[in-house]
Design a binder for these strands. Sequence first.
DNA 1: CTCCGAGTTTGACCTGGCGCAAGGTCCGGC
DNA 2: GCCGGACCTTGCGCCAGGTCAAACTCGGAG
Lengths: 231, 231
Amino acid sequence: MKKLDESLIAPLPPFRKLDRAQIREILDQATSRRHDEGTEIFRGGDEADRFFLLLDGVARVVRVLPGGEQVIVRHIPPGQLIGIAPALGRATYPATAVAASEALTLSWPTRLWPGFMSRYEGFATETWATVGQRLDQLHDDMAALATQAVEQRVAACVLRMVNQTGRAVEGGIEIAFPVTRANIAEMTGTTLHTVSRLLSAWEKDGLVESRRKRIVVTQPHKLVLLSGATA
Amino acid sequence: MKKLDESLIAPLPPFRKLDRAQIREILDQATSRRHDEGTEIFRGGDEADRFFLLLDGVARVVRVLPGGEQVIVRHIPPGQLIGIAPALGRATYPATAVAASEALTLSWPTRLWPGFMSRYEGFATETWATVGQRLDQLHDDMAALATQAVEQRVAACVLRMVNQTGRAVEGGIEIAFPVTRANIAEMTGTTLHTVSRLLSAWEKDGLVESRRKRIVVTQPHKLVLLSGATA
DNA sequence: CTCCGAGTTTGACCTGGCGCAAGGTCCGGC
DNA sequence: GCCGGACCTTGCGCCAGGTCAAACTCGGAG
C-alpha cells in the first residue's frame, strides 16, 4: 500500500481539529480499499469488525427485509463515516453498504474506535452530530412516506440526491452517481413502473432529462414545487 | 420539592453503574415535574435547554409537518432519556414530546450534559446504545412503511405498543396508556377510518377487544401472523 | 340527570398507483 | 459487428384504501 496523503482526510469534519501528527497516526493505522460499483463494502448481519471512512464515491445503505424486499435507507456522500455500528453498541452491521459508484474507503479495526473517541478532540462531537443528522433525516423520510403522495416523495428523493451529490453539467445539475428507476423505487416505497412514468412526465414538461442510469435536473425550482415544499 | 428517592433511578440503564454518591449528586441537580395527559413536555423548535428522564408514564414523540399533518415518530417507555438533542449537537428540539398518559419526568439543564457524559461511567455508552436502538427501529419502521400493507403495519404497531408497555389484564394484555384510532393512524401513515375498520374486523375475529382509548390484545399470536412476521 | 364533545363506527364512492404483460433501447463483451 | 442482458417505457385492469358524509356512544362536567 502506498503512503496516504494527509490532505485527504485532514479537512473532513471528524478530523478537522487534529494536528498533523495525529492525522499521520490515524492514517498509519488505516487500510485503504477500492470498491467497484455495485460491490458490497460490508454486509448487514456480519460481525462489525471494522469502521469505514468513505473517501470518494457514494455508498448506498440497504436493508433487506425478511421477505426479500430491499429498501434503500440512505445514500452517504464522500467524507462521511459509515459502518459505525460499534459506536452504537452493536456487534453486527444493521444494514448492508454497497458502492453506488466506484468508491474509495479507509477503514480501521473496531477495537480502535474507543481510542478515537477519547484521544481525538472533536471526533466524538462530530460523529454524534452526524448521527443526529441521520436521525433527523430519517424522521423526515418517515414523515414523507407516511403522509405524502408518491409524486412528491419521488421529487423530494431526486432533489435530495441532487443536493447531496449534484454537479453542474451543461443544461442543469446531474446526480453524480448512477441511479436506476428501480433504485429510486426502493428509496421511495413505490415501483419502478411508477417512477418511470413520473420521470417520463417530468421529461415531457422539461423538468429533467434522463438517460439510462443518469438524471439531470434542468428546472430544480419546479421540482421543488412538485415535492410539496410549503411556499 | 421533596427529596427524591435514589432507588427511582439507580437501576435504570444510564445510571446502572454509578455508586450511591453519584446518584445522589445527579438527583440533587434534577428538577422533577408531573405532566398531565396530553400536555407538552417540550416542543419541537424550542431551544433545547433541558434534557429529560421519563420516570413514569409514556411519552409520544410527534413531528408536525409544514402542511399541518402530524406524524407520531415513536413512543418512549418509562426509564428512558428524552430530549437529548444537545447530545446530537443541535440547539433546538427536533420534535415535540407529549405525555401520552400522566407522566413524571426528571430534567437537567443542557449545560450539565457534557459533564454527565464524561464523569459518569456507562452513561455515554448506554446513551449511544439507546440512540442505536432508535436508529434501528426507525429503519424498520421506514422499511415497513415502504413495503408493507396497511393491515400489517397497524398490526405491527399495536404489537409494538403491547410489547413496550403492555400489562396483563383479565382476558389478555392491555396497552398501558390511552391510544385513539387517530393516534394509530398517525403512527402507521393511514387514516383513522381505516384503523377503525381494521380493529372492528379483528374484534369480530376475537383477536382484540377495544373500548374507547383502550386496547386489549387477546390473541397476540394471531396478530403476529397478521403483522407479516416471517415464520 | 342531562348535555356535550371527543372518539368511534359504518356506508358509499372514487381514484392513485400497483400488478401484469409486452415491447423497446442501450451498452458491454466477445 | 453482433448478441445478450440489463434497463427503460407504456398500456390496461383492478382494488386497497382514501375521502366524504352521517350517525352513534361513551364519559365527564355541571
